[in-house]
Design a protein around this nucleic acid. Structure first.
Length: 1115
RNA sequence: GGGGGAGUAGCUCAGCUGGUGAGAGCAGGCGUCUUAUACACGCCCGGUCGGUGGUUCGAGUCCACCCUCCCCUACCA
């Protein structure tokens, strides 16, 4: 027997109960055993950064991952089920620094790199454990580590990293030091999620970098880079776009006095005053016009086109020269007395003499902003640097890695660049260089991690060359040209991948075409140790391809690294012999870009090096999915780049991208804005199935607005399903029905039964197709439509068959049909709503069938076993019928005749689509619209008057200007309809296929039409019909009273109706009312004193009645 | 700065190669149905389709210009 079901479910409590059930009964483990050896479907997880609790936006992506994996499991596909954690990089460092109250890299070095790195690892383990718990709560099935075990390892790592520890792996216990066990997490012998800080991950990146070096693509660049002074690291092009923000800077105009033209000065504009300390030359455009102007007793030179924007106050133009005429003019800079400037200029001048500031020509100079004369500081800007290199200018690099002025800058030395503006302005004013200061708003790059405005610094960084960009379409490139350019090789790989949504393909190609060389170095502590050995003695660069190779080549320091993961500081101690000169070389101190860590996972997690057969089996992944904003240049890019270098083939076949999650108000979720929802809060308040349903219905290419209201909408939809389920269970229990009762054969069931089963079979087919095509929202829409059909059509029309049927066979057919529908629906829902579907299944199947699999997640996709139910003709017919009912209801509403009032008849015409109906459907239909009779007719000609609707798309081109008159005639009804179906309007004859004939009602009827379907309703209410309607009113009132009294659905009553004129009219119906309201005795007379009293107003008076519980009758 | 997208009901969005009363969901109002008991269904309210001009018999849809927002991209001082 089914367990009773509450009418309002506690979804959250149910979810917790099922989590316990799955855990206790090892359902997931058994699913894996069940599909082991099946056809392989390879999903590769994009690692989540284990640095904070997961958010509801992660739950969106994880819903996709879980749905598609579960769907494939239901198809019997073997899978890897490996979650990934992204572990290394600045994300983690920034948080650990914050926890420790650090503000600079010096703090870290004072604290100790080893200790700092250990804290980073501990933080990763903390949040890996946390996110694991949250993912499990979401119902996300993966090969999860035990969160307690992760926390234990974390604590051991803090206390005793070199102590021996044993963990339980899939192939038995594994013993190693704590540090090394942590480094082996996710490896085959330890199992569980993969961690990008693992030894194997780092090792394979070394192999990748060595391969890049072997091909000559790895190089050290000396360039002016965007730099975050807080983090003390360069920012690569990949990271730049994340951090553009509007910012207000000083828009400063200053004077550069001309040495050879006394009393005259150049006007120069800058938004970064600190770079003036490093000014070397001033640039003008050769083609631009420059003017000499007088303001008071001052004379300035500036671009003619900038006069209006640059000058303050009245001026007089004295002279005009082309920019080319200014070349070579010497000027004095504002910081020429600084030691650093003097030193840089001392020997850089022509013929080895001292360098002097002068004007150079530069075609980059424009007049849109500033003064048309550009201050150039090659040590402080990328484009300045390029110009400086081209002209052989001296370079002044004023900042250290923390953004502090280095020695040689007098009072500025030791000061932070971020707060020297006032000091510099003061100095400019004092020495007469100042002209004008105005705030200037512009988009300026900021550090994407900490939000600090970036500065530009001259530094050495390591790059992977992306190869040349050719000035021709890809189709015209030769094989040699492609071989020489990594970017084009990646593009070829991209061609072989399916991108969902499709614009992803274009966007990735666009990024590849425009991207610069990949800067892979970071001057930080926690991350991949770049295995680059840059010999100071002879300049030879060597890259070590793995830990083993390093051990073999080490000439000193190996013992320091021995027993440690390949992280700083231990790895820094190892030196190798320079292959060029033999000198011992140490590793460059840089760590790697974290996207290297995530990009190698198609190799590291698929045992590329250790188990080639396994790798062959699972590579490439069939499917990956991540949020696409940003990932085109991050994970997607690094996956493609690394796989292209190592294999020149795609690491995945299909990529599915989804957009961004915002708060309900359309803004990014932000705690201080009050629109943020924590994952845990969402899970415990709305339930994860509601969350999953919200995500399942979202269009992935659109941003999702997530909040409590959206969740309520999703919940309402699920409650409809729950209501159907609760209805079924309630009446199955009353009737004692269980599935082991033999069900009538399909052919012996009603059209309605066969219809819903056909719909179910179609549902399973279509949802399966959609899920196989990674089109979850379309699948969810199919399910919504089915739930609606099941509830508002099938069940609505079938209710009496469950509760008050005298035909046992028909009742059994109804129960069997609804049971099949609910179980089938649950199985289709299982990948999407693992909890709700399990809840239904456990009660509808497991509770009554000991032989059934004990979890819905151990059942297979139901489409094959349902396919015999398909009957498309029946579905078409039902679509017509349901549309007819809608139209009739609408007619009643317009006519002011409520549904409870019976009417004599309705007529409907049936189109071709409707001919598959069965007779019992007509009967249900008559009940549903409360008419005595439905007459199916071939033509509506006798019932209606005609109106003509010209089909504009057909006639528009032909008639042109005659259209307005034709349309007016159609509206007036002055149309001549000919026997052949053609129509004459306003003197123009239209062919039958150029018009649609509509129908309008005759008196006493109402008519509605839709797509060729016509329904006509006889709206005449005869006295007999009126009386019957009043009887229904009475019945309704009695049922209401029963409810007020709190009677059980099967409790019996005595009914008394007071005498009166109204009663006379309804007396023929009293017996029927008694049956419907479970009244054993129906009396016309005074209402007993102990009865509950009710009344209802009808046309002929008021009906008064009383009911009372029939004592003892129930027992 | 370049490229792309979008501005349609209070909110979130549909509106196909131009066709003449502009749609859905939610919110609001009204009603209906029901021993699925407050679930569901129906109806109504509500829009000068960002602005201006143009092409056309006809423009939310095509063209031009302008305004606002978003995304991508960029070495501009």
């Amino acid at each position: 027997m089914f367990a009773p079901v509450p009418s309002k479910p506690d979804l959250v409590a149910e979810e917790h109960a099922l989590l316990a059930f799955w855990r206790d009964r090892r359902i997931f483990a058994r699913l894996r055993e069940q599909v082991a050896g099946g056809t392989r479907w390879s999903f590769l997880d994009g690692p989540i950064t284990a640095n904070n609790p997961m958010g509801v936006h992660h739950a969106w992506g994880r819903t996709y991952k879980d749905v598609f994996q579960r769907y494939h499991a239901m198809l019997g596909h073997d899978q890897r089920w490996q979650n990934g954690f992204d572990c290394q990089g600045l994300w983690v460092e920034v948080n650990v620094e914050r926890d420790l109250g650090f503000t600079s890299k010096r703090d870290i070095e004072d604290y100790g790199i080893a200790e700092f790195v250990s804290l980073c690892k501990q933080r990763v383990l903390t949040y890996a454990a946390r996110q694991t718990e949250q993912s499990i709560r979401l119902g996300y099935w993966m090969d999860w580590d035990d969160p307690e075990e992760l926390r234990r390892l974390r604590d051991l790592l803090a206390a005793e990293p070199d102590a021996s520890v044993t963990v339980e792996g899939p192939r038995g216990p594994v013993t190693d030091t704590v540090e090394m066990i942590v480094g082996r997490l996710g490896m085959p012998e330890v199992g569980g999620s993969y961690y990008t800080f693992s030894n194997e991950n780092n090792d394979l990146i070394w192999a990748f970098l060595a391969e890049c070096h072997r091909r000559g693509w790895l190089y050290k660049g000396h360039d002016t880079m965007p730099w975050c002074a807080r983090c003390g690291t360069g920012i690569s092009q990949h990271e730049m776009t994340e951090g553009y923000q509007d910012r207000e800077d000083p828009g400063l105009t200053i004077r550069f006095p001309l040495i050879d033209r006394p009393g005259e000065a150049l006007l120069v504009w800058t938004t970064t005053p600190w770079t003036l300390t490093s000014n070397v030359v001033a640039a003008v455009g050769a083609e631009l016009a420059y003017v000499k102007v007088r303001q008071g007793d001052r004379v300035y030179w500036l671009g003619k086109g900038t006069l209006r924007q640059a000058l303050q106050g009245p001026f007089e133009v004295l002279d005009e020269l082309p920019g080319s005429a200014l070349e070579g003019w010497r000027y004095r800079g504002p910081f020429d007395d600084l030691h650093a400037v003097r030193a840089a200029f001392a020997t850089s001048g022509r013929a080895g003499g001292a360098f002097e500031h002068h004007i150079v020509l530069w075609d980059e100079v424009g007049e849109e902003e500033g003064t048309g004369i550009v201050h150039v500081a090659p040590g402080c800007g990328a484009e300045d640097f390029a110009l400086g290199k081209q002209l052989g200018l001296p370079m002044i690099a004023p900042l250290d890695e923390n953004g502090i002025f280095i020695e040689g800058f007098d009072a500025l030395t030791g000061r932070d660049v971020r707060d020297t503006t006032d000091q510099i302005l003061e100095r400019l004013r004092h020495h007469g260089f100042f002209y004008r200061l105005e705030p200037y708003r512009h988009r300026y790059p900021h550090c994407w991690r900490c939000g600090t405005p970036l500065v530009f610094r001259l530094v050495d960084e390591w790059y992977i060359s992306m190869g040349p960009v050719y000035d021709r379409p890809r189709s015209e490139l030769t094989a040699d040209e492609v071989d020489a350019s990594l970017r084009y090789q990646i593009m070829e790989v991209v061609d072989g991948i399916r991108w969902i949504p499709s614009f992803g393909y274009e966007r990735e190609l666009d990024w590849l075409l425009n991207m610069h060389d990949w800067m892979i170095s970071k001057k930080r502590y926690w991350g991949l140790a770049l295995p680059i050995y840059d010999c100071r003695a002879c300049g030879t660069v060597e890259v070590v391809g793995g830990r083993e190779e390093l051990r073999e080549r080490a000439v000193e320091g190996w013992e320091v690294l021995e027993g440690h993961t390949p992280h700083r500081p231990y790895v820094d101690a190892v030196k190798i012999a320079c292959p060029g000169c033999g000198a011992p070389v140490e590793r460059v101190r840089d760590v790697g870009n974290p996207w290297l860590d995530a990009g190698i996972v198609p190799f590291s997690t698929m045992h590329y090096r250790t188990d080639p057969a396994y790798w062959e089996t699972w590579f490439p992944a069939d499917f990956i999915t991540e949020s696409f904003p940003g990932q085109f240049r991050n994970w997607f890019y690094s996956l493609l780049a690394m796989s292209t270098v190592l294999r020149r083939e795609a690491p995945f076949r299909t990529i599915f991208g989804y957009a961004t999650l915002f708060g309900e108000d359309g803004r990014p979720m932000h705690k201080s804005w009050g629109n943020a929802i924590e994952f845990d809060e969402a899970a415990e308040r709305m339930g994860v199935d509601v969350m999953r349903w919200t995500y399942a219905n979202a269009r992935p290419e659109d941003n999702i607005l997530f909040g409590w209201h959206a969740a309520d909408e999703a919940r309402r939809e699920l409650l409809v399903l729950w209501n159907v389920y609760a209805f079924f269970v309630t009446y199955a229990r009353v009737a004692g029905w269980t599935p082991d009762r033999p069900a009538p054969a399909l052919d012996d069931r009603t059209g309605l039964d066969r219809w819903i089963l056909s719909r179910l079979a179609g549902l399973a087919d279509r949802v399966g197709d959609r899920l196989a095509d990674y089109d979850l929202d379309a699948g969810a829409r199919e399910i919504s439509r089915f739930i609606d059909d099941l509830s508002t059509w099938y069940l609505r029309l079938s209710r009496k068959r469950f509760s008050r049927s005298s035909d046992a066979a028909d009742r059994d057919a109804a129960f069997a049909t609804l049971h099949t529908s609910l179980v089938g629906l649950a199985r289709v829902l299982a990948p999407i709503l693992p909890f709700l579907s399990e809840s239904l299944y456990r009660n509808l199947v497991v509770a009554v069938d000991a032989a059934a699999p004990e979890s819905i997640h151990l059942t297979s996709w139901p489409a094959p076993e349902l396919s015999s139910f398909r009957d498309p003709g029946l579905e078409d017919a039902m679509a017509v019928f349901s549309r007819a009912v809608e139209l009739i209801r609408s007619l009643r509403s317009q006519a002011g005749i409520k549904l409870r009032q019976p009417l004599a008849r309705a007529w409907i015409t049936l189109t071709d689509a409707g001919v598959g109906y069965s007779d019992d459907m007509l009967g249900r239909l008559a009940d549903e619209i409360n008419v005595k009779e439905i007459v199916v007719i071939a033509s509506d000609s006798d019932l209606v008057e005609r109106r003509v609707k010209p089909l504009l798309p057909r006639i528009g081109r032909r008639l042109g200007a005659a259209i307005p008159a034709v349309m007016a005639a159609a509206r007036d009804g002055t149309a001549e309809i000919h026997a052949d179906g053609s129509v004459t309007l306003a003197g123009v004859t239209l062919a039958p296929d150029e018009v649609e004939i509509l129908s309008s009602p005759r008196p006493g009827t109402a008519v509605a039409h839709d797509e060729g379907l016509v329904v006509v309703l006889d709206t005449t209410v005869t006295p007999e019909l009126r009386a019957e309607g009043e009887a229904r009113d009475l019945q309704r009132a009695i049922q209401d009273l029963r409810r007020e009294m709190g009677l059980a659905v099967d409790e019996r009553i005595d009914l008394a109706v007071e005498e009166g004129p109204a009663v006379e009219r309804i007396s023929p119906f009293l017996a029927g009312i008694g049956a419907e309201t479970l009244a054993d005795a129906v009396a016309v007379g005074p209402v007993p004193a102990d009865a509950a009293f009710g009344e209802v107003a009808v046309e002929s008076g008021t009906l008064r009645f009383g009911i009372r519980r029939r004592d003892g009758a129930a027992s």
